[in-house]
């Protein structure tokens, strides 16, 4: 299914995507994509609807299988791993709509995401000891939910749900965090807090973010990639991208 990922070269990048293509019944949602993400880099992907942004995240985390090409993380090929093995390798992904467990409390949401006791019998024997408790509180504080630990996650506001899901990623300590429109539906104040949050947690890890809010992108991105029709249109600093006539035409011009 994947054409010779073994031929992909070793790189110093944390994430190296080469010649990645996925075809749905002949429609190439991602077409020969090359994308490299550095260690501790915050990369934002922008682009019009249908450009293939979410599909790229789906491909990296294994939700969608590539037709051809290679995705290397720490020079380890991801395209052949099962979804949970990709998580174990150090890739965390947040979905576009907050995917949290509404019937569990905030603390339980974090405990479920805690990266120990991941096998069936491991989870049966898992003990919520002081180490776990401390970590849960730490993460809850990082995502501004330290006072809501015992409340059902279902009653949180939309923005808080987004934060909780970010917290659920954080507790797994991934080296690459992928976020799909993390500030969509947030108030101005929440956006600002989220920006600070992301800037804080990017230490020691990289991020790949899809976002439409240009002010937000400007405030956090180290580098911006513009996608269009499954390919990369432009890549570079926010200013470079913003001034590019092709980007204006397909995306920013309206």
């Amino acid at each position: 299914m994947t054409t010779n990922p073994s031929t992909a070269s070793n790189t110093d990048f944390l994430l190296a995507i080469e010649d990645l293509t996925v075809s749905f019944d002949g429609f190439k949602a991602v077409n020969g994509l090359n994308l490299y993400v550095d260690r501790e880099e915050i990369r934002v992907i922008i682009g019009p609807n249908g450009a293939g942004k979410t599909t790229v995240l789906d491909l990296i985390c294994g939700k969608t299988r590539a037709t051809s090409g290679s995705i290397r993380f720490h020079n380890r090929e991801l395209t052949r791993l099962a979804e949970h093995e990709i998580v174990w390798a150090g890739v965390g992904r947040k979905f576009q709509n907050p995917a949290i467990y509404e019937n569990l409390t905030v603390a339980e949401n974090l405990v479920v995401s805690y990266p120990k006791g991941r096998s069936v019998f491991g989870s049966l024997g898992f003990r919520r000891d002081a180490t776990v408790q401390t970590r849960v509180e730490e993460v809850a504080e990082a995502v501004f939910l330290q006072d809501r630990l015992d409340e059902p996650a279902g009653i949180l506001s939309h923005g808080q749900k987004q934060w909780l899901e970010i917290g659920m990623l954080l507790i797994q300590e991934p080296e690459l965090i992928m976020l799909d429109e993390p500030v969509a539906g947030m108030s101005v104040r929440e956006r600002q807090q989220t920006g600070e949050l992301l800037a804080r947690i990017c230490q020691g890890r990289s991020m790949l973010i899809i976002e439409h809010d240009m002010d937000f992108v400007r405030s956090i991105a180290h580098k911006v990639t513009v996608m269009h029709q499954g390919k990369i249109l432009v890549e570079g600093s926010m200013d470079k991208v913003h001034d590019d006539p092709r980007v204006k035409e397909v995306y920013l011009g309206h």
Binding site: H84, Y101, E102, R118, Q172
Partner: peptide, 12 residues
């Protein structure tokens, strides 16, 4: 409630 979220939190 969220099978995919569990899967992408590292569980089989």
């Amino acid at each position: 409630d969220q099978e995919d979220r569990v899967r992408f939190s590292g569980y089989d």
